[in-house]
Design a protein around this nucleic acid. Structure first.
Lengths: 221, 221
DNA sequence: AATAATTTTTAGACAAATCTAAAAATTAAT
DNA sequence: ATTAATTTTTAGATTTGTCTAAAAATTATT
């Protein structure tokens, strides 16, 4: 059973949204794809029928394992093509997105396998985003920015990107220090602030500005 | 006004057919695209509306200058991608067609420009077919097989691919010799035989087998 | 808790590309 | 030159993905 380009675009978008919020809303998808909420509902029915997502009327939805694997396949293709465009064809990193959006829908396992090999099996694309392997496994960067950590993920503070005394005072106040474990509980879309649990004990809110200066080593759950 | 993938496939097919027969028939397109004659008629109306072809009901049709330019753009992309797949990604020459059929529809002038440059501005694809340049100009191979010469094209016999006495006897009988000018008058689909005028005087029929052994330098009309 | 606001779904319509079956036009054959 | 066969077109239906407007469900507010 083949998947259309439109379906692929929905799957990719839903995947990206459910990285941040566990359940995805109809309106969020509509906004991301610049379409109407009614169209999203229509597509949700189709994707449910194809057993790619878990969905109950009015209750939000998310991709199931099958859907996630499908999404990772599309993201893999997208990022391999971006790598190709920048590394091989000399595109600038900010010129590649539109073209990669088209190339990611080309259907040929052989093509992707050869492209991957030609590029030297890259683990990260030119933007630094991880490229899932053929099985859907996502490489973990040793150290990532806290803003990159998805909801529910855990990490250990490995570096701070500033030495300002104001910032150090704030960290002391929130009991955040190098080596502390941190778990992302919730990400607030409005101001991009993050609720985290420190050392599996205290819940604190971290502003977007502070998060940009904190780096973590991810911990497998 | 943008052109859909379906429209592009029709345009490419019509172009290829009108290389052989001056006017193209509804059924020929339907057969080539494995679709119904009714669908072809529907599409012809759309393409006429977009001013890409000359069409009158029941009277056959052909691409106009605008349509030919569009077709050449698609063929250029197809052949550049085939070159990329074989030369860069190590595909075998007989594995590339299906994938190139998809890649030829990617819309990005910049992508094709960069790809062309990366490949070293190739003039011919791995099958030996000419790659139109960005302006639609088709490179002429010094010497091509007679079977490659389209209807109405002229050439000068430049080589014969066999020295068998049977063949030489046949050539003498038809008054074909090195340096003779040859003009393709008609190509018969049934047995792929060709009617040609020799030295702008005598009309003779050349079998597919004989044509395969004759090479010509093309002459601009 | 009742009402208001928001979100989501349904209902009905539309455009693109296709189909089948039947009608119209052209071409071939007796 | 009629009739038969073939080709092409029309008419009407279908699928996919979309839309708007209205109804239903949920969430927020007073």
């Amino acid at each position: 059973m083949s998947i259309s380009v439109a379906e692929e675009n929905y799957i990719k978008t839903i995947y990206q949204l459910q990285m941040h919020e566990d359940l995805v809303s109809t309106n969020a998808v509509a906004a991301a794809l610049q379409t109407s909420a009614a169209s999203v509902t229509d597509m949700l029915k189709k994707l449910k029928l194809k057993k790619l997502l878990v969905y109950e009327k009015y209750k939000g939805f998310k991709l199931n394992q099958q859907g996630i694997q499908t999404a990772l396949g599309i993201i893999r293709k997208h990022r391999l093509w971006e790598t190709f465009l920048v590394n091989t064809l000399q595109f600038k990193w900010d010129e590649v997105h539109e073209v990669a959006e088209q190339l990611e829908h080309i259907q040929s396992a052989q093509l992707i396998q050869h492209l991957d090999q030609f590029l030297g099996n890259p683990q990260f694309d030119p933007h630094g985003d991880p490229i899932p392997d053929a099985a859907g496994k996502i490489p973990i960067r040793e150290q990532i920015n806290l803003t990159q950590l998805p909801v529910h993920a855990m990490g250990k503070i490995s570096a701070v990107g500033s030495q300002s005394s104001d910032m150090l005072a704030l960290l002391r106040h929130k009991q955040i220090e190098l080596g502390a474990t941190i778990k992302v509980e919730q990400i607030f879309a409005f101001d991009e602030s993050i609720d985290v649990t420190i050392n599996q004990a205290t819940l604190v809110n971290i502003s977007a500005k502070l998060a940009k200066h904190l780096y973590v080593k991810t911990i497998a759950l």
